[in-house]
Nucleic acid binder design. Structure first.
Length: 438
RNA sequence: GCGGCUAUGGCGAAGUUGGUUAACGCACCGGAUUGUGGCUCCGGCAUUUCAAGGGUUCGAGUCUCUUUAGUCGCCCCA
């Protein structure tokens, strides 16, 4: 009989965030919250589980996400559930279901952060479980807001010292413009179907705009001579797009208009954009942020018609290009070193006191030798070693060793505030030294 | 969904045309040194085992097949 070897491994396409990396995520998440807050956004948290109807309806039946990338399953009550593959649809659903558009002033400016799931082949910067940060502004059609949203994303990247990107910008126009353009494309491609790739033949029926996005035929005459969106825009759409561009010019946001840009999800209208990372030393390139206006989504989901715009980016991709050469770990750390059981009991109380005063404090409960305690202090990178044996216990003192200044002194702890004052002095001295050095 | 590459201890990795005991480094544990660690030195640390399973062979970590996983491309996407 075979004895199976059990290996409990992570699910394909997922990853563990070990402390070193989790620290980076926390830092970035805090930064994103702070930056979004400066622009007037509030956080919204919505469930990871969503009804499949919502996801399928909103992202478009023809989108690749729905046709082959969703995690769908039936729950025990026979409900068809989808793990959310993106944030916009669930957030819009929540806004409609909770009638936020009626109880709050418009526009709503919301940001979200959390896990998304897509059943894709994992590769660089792409996972099956990944995290996105995104914003949604709901309830305004002002093109100035389009520009402000792009400015927020730009600010985020620049403040993280990421400068080697450019914004690709386009407009799909309003409903009227889109319909006219769509018809023009259909007419143009109708007698050229044979020369298109297999995928594009399907796109012709479902979403002819996406033929423009085809990578297979991208250099062919057919695509190059295809009708251009700009020729089919209504005056309103043209004017709005001009406003977006002029605002971006005014704020020195680097962008290029790319008439070939369309997006993977079906709900976009008017302004759409992608942030593209330019070739860097790390060799990475590609889209690091994408978004656009979706003026029909709220009504498609049985809510009122509310002009809306948003963007999203993957935290994995962002963090992979942030340069973390600064210290994220500065901390105050006291290692308590008892010699003997009596001192151990006594130090437990002292340790708890220091913790309540904000000092990160630890003790190795298993060490049998002084050497073991000191080794623990090393691996904890403790700055202060607080040592007490029977002798010190009897006299009501501890020895405090400050490894940074390489000093060791006896401190009276009959009044614990005495110890706190002593440590605070050392801390303040350290901070003074730092600021003087700068 | 398609293609390339990879898979050796906790980690990083040697392993020559298949040929007795699977280098080395880091980490870890013990000791020299049980009221002061870090350095140094000594010792320990893969052994029906080289991702799993099958095949070729007198002999397989080395060749072959399958599966799984990782990784990098394509499609698509954040």
């Amino acid at each position: 009989m075979e004895v199976p070897i059990f290996m409990y491994t992570k699910v394909k396409g997922t990853y563990d965030l070990l402390p070193n990396d989790a620290r980076k995520y926390s830092y970035i998440e805090d930064f994103l919250k702070d930056t979004a807050s400066l622009f007037g956004y509030e956080e919204i948290r919505v469930p990871i589980l969503a009804t499949s109807d919502l996801i399928h309806r909103s992202t478009g039946e023809s989108s690749d996400i729905v046709t082959k990338e969703t995690y769908d399953f039936k729950d025990r009550g026979d409900r068809i559930i989808t793990l959310r593959p993106e944030g916009t649809a669930p957030v819009i659903r929540s806004i409609i279901e909770n009638k936020l558009y009626a109880t709050n002033a418009l526009p709503l400016k919301l940001f979200y952060m959390g896990e998304m799931f897509r059943y894709e082949r994992p590769q660089k910067g792409r996972f099956r479980e990944f995290r996105q940060f995104g914003v949604e502004v709901v309830g305004t059609s002002s093109p100035y807001m389009d520009a402000e949203v792009i400015l927020l994303a730009t600010t985020i990247f620049k403040d993280l010292n990421i400068n080697n990107f450019k914004v690709r910008l386009n407009t799909l126009g309003d409903d009227e413009s889109r319909n006219n353009y769509r018809n023009a494309l259909k007419e143009y491609f109708s007698d050229k179907l044979d020369s298109l790739c297999e995928d594009c033949k399907k796109r012709f029926e479902k979403n002819p705009l996406r033929i423009l996005d085809c990578k297979v035929d991208k250099d062919s005459e057919i695509l190059l001579n295809a009708p251009k969106v700009s020729d089919y825009l209504s005056q309103k759409s043209k004017d709005d797009f001009e406003i977006v561009k002029s605002y971006l010019d005014e704020l020195d946001v680097p962008y290029v208009v790319d008439e070939k840009l369309v997006r993977g999800l079906d709900y976009y209208t008017n302004t759409i954009f992608e942030f593209e990372l330019l070739d860097s030393e790390s060799g990475q390139s590609g889209t690091i942020c994408a978004g656009g206006r979706y003026d029909n989504l709220t009504s498609d989901l049985d809510g009122p018609k509310l002009g809306s715009i948003g963007f999203a980016f993957g935290l994995e991709r962002l963090i992979s290009i942030v340069n973390f050469d600064f210290d994220l770990t500065h901390s105050i750390n006291c290692q308590f070193i008892p010699i003997g059981e009596n001192a151990k009991k006594n130090l437990l109380k002292v340790m708890q006191y220091l913790r309540t005063m904000g000092f990160i404090s630890e003790m190795n409960y298993e060490a049998t030798s002084l050497k073991g305690h000191f080794k623990s202090a090393d691996s904890n990178k403790a700055r202060y070693l607080i040592i007490q044996g029977d002798d010190e216990l009897e006299r009501g003192v501890v020895k405090v060793k400050d490894k940074l200044n390489n000093t060791e002194e006896e401190v009276d702890i009959k009044d614990l505030n005495n110890l706190l004052d002593y440590l605070m002095d050392l801390e303040n001295k350290y901070l003074d030294d730092i600021s003087e050095g700068e």
